[in-house]
């Protein structure tokens, strides 16, 4: 349990809220509709998403260690299954469900 007073807890949570909202609202405040968005920012808006999605996949796998434990094998196999399913059937939900079930079977039964 916490040693903080209730006021300190509320301040801590409020800082989390304000910090989060600052990162979410800042681009919209800086590049408001009145002035045209700078060309460089427009370029970033188009170039960033692919980079972000690649980054998010790595982010999801950040706690995988290749040199210990199961060496990231269940993750690799399940991602291969997800990609394979998706290239084959192109059904988003099926690919996600299939990949997840594959992973659960691997970590519960094999590794």
């Amino acid at each position: 349990m916490t040693d903080m007073t209730l006021t300190q807890q509320i301040i801590t949570i409020a800082i989390c809220i304000l910090g989060t909202m600052a990162t979410r609202f800042l681009p919209f405040l800086v590049f408001s509709g009145r002035r045209p968005t700078p060309k460089f920012v427009q370029y970033l808006g188009r170039a960033l998403p692919s980079a972000i999605f690649g980054m998010l996949v790595v982010y999801c796998l950040k706690n995988v260690t290749v040199f210990a434990g199961s060496h990231g094998l269940p993750e690799m196999i399940a991602i291969a299954a997800t990609v394979g399913l998706h290239l084959w059937k192109k059904q988003m939900l099926l690919s996600i469900a299939g990949g997840t079930v594959c992973y659960m079977l691997l970590v519960q039964l094999v590794f």
């Binding site: 692919s50 999801c60 399940a78 988003m92 996600i96 990949g99 992973y103």
Partner: peptide, 26 residues
């Protein structure tokens, strides 16, 4: 969650012609 981001990333890769920025991010 991982599977979902993998599929979204894959969809993005299939839609775009060049993958430079995907490569940069990954």
């Amino acid at each position: 969650m991982t599977a979902m981001f993998v599929v979204i990333f894959l969809e993005q890769l299939m839609k775009e012609k060049k993958h430079y920025t995907a490569l940069v991010g990954t």
